[in-house]
Amino acid sequence: AQFIESYVCRMCSRGDEDDKLLLCDGCDDNYHIFCLLPPLPEIPKGVWRCPKCVM
C-alpha cells in the first residue's frame, strides 16, 4: 500500500489547519496563509505562486 504524504506548510512544517493551506501553482509547495510574509487574510482566488516562484 502507498501512503500519500499529507500537505505540510513549507514555513512551519505543520499540516494542521489545512483549510488555510495554499498550494503554489508553480512548484506545488504548500504554505499556510498566516505563515506567509506578509500574511494573507484569506485564500486568494485564481493562480497563486509562492515567494520562491515569484522571485
Rank of each mutant, 00 (worst) to 15 (best):
Y31M: 10
D29H: 15
Y7W: 06
M11K: 15
L23F: 04
D28Q: 05
Q2F: 03
M11L: 06
K20R: 08
P39V: 09
Q2P: 08
L21A: 04
L36A: 07
P39E: 12
Y7H: 10
E42C: 06
H32R: 02
S6M: 15
K52Q: 10
L37V: 10
D28A: 14
C35N: 01
D25A: 14
R49S: 05
Q2H: 07
D16R: 12
D16K: 06
N30L: 06
K52N: 11
C9N: 00
M11Y: 13
F34E: 12
G15Y: 12
C50Q: 02
C24Q: 08
G26P: 01
V47G: 11
F34I: 05
P38C: 07
C53V: 01
H32K: 00
Q2W: 11
F3W: 02
C53T: 00
K52T: 12
Y7I: 12
D28S: 14
F34K: 15
V54R: 09
K20M: 03
C9H: 01
D28K: 03
I4A: 07
W48H: 01
F34A: 08
E42M: 04
C50W: 01
Y7E: 15
I43N: 07
D18R: 14
C53R: 00
D19K: 13
G46M: 06
L36K: 02
K20W: 05
D19F: 09
E42N: 11
Y31V: 09
D25Y: 04
V47Y: 11
Y7L: 11
Q2Y: 11
K52A: 12
C27Y: 01
P51H: 12
D29L: 09
L23D: 13
N30D: 01
C9A: 01
P51L: 02
G46N: 04
Y31E: 03
P41L: 14
F34G: 13
W48F: 06
V54I: 12
R10L: 12
K45N: 12
L36W: 06
D19T: 15
I43W: 07
G15D: 11
W48G: 02
S6C: 04
L37G: 09
Y7N: 15
F34N: 14
I33S: 08
N30K: 14
R49Q: 14
P51Y: 05
V54C: 10
C27E: 00
F34D: 08
K45H: 11
L36N: 03
R10V: 08
C53M: 02
E42Y: 09
G26N: 09
A1D: 12
G15F: 12
I4M: 14
D25K: 07
L37S: 12
E42D: 13
C12P: 03
D29F: 09
D28R: 15
D18M: 14
D25T: 12
I43H: 08
P38G: 04
K52E: 06
G15S: 14
D19P: 08
R10Q: 03
C53W: 00
C50L: 02
R49A: 06
H32Y: 00
D16C: 09
C9G: 02
P39A: 12
P38T: 05
R49N: 15
L21C: 05
K52G: 12
Y31T: 02
L23G: 10
C50M: 00
D28L: 05
N30P: 10
D25M: 04
S6Y: 10
P51I: 07
P38Y: 04
P41W: 04
D18I: 14
H32D: 00
E5W: 04
C12K: 04
D28I: 15
C12M: 02
N30M: 07
Y7D: 15
I4E: 08
L37R: 14
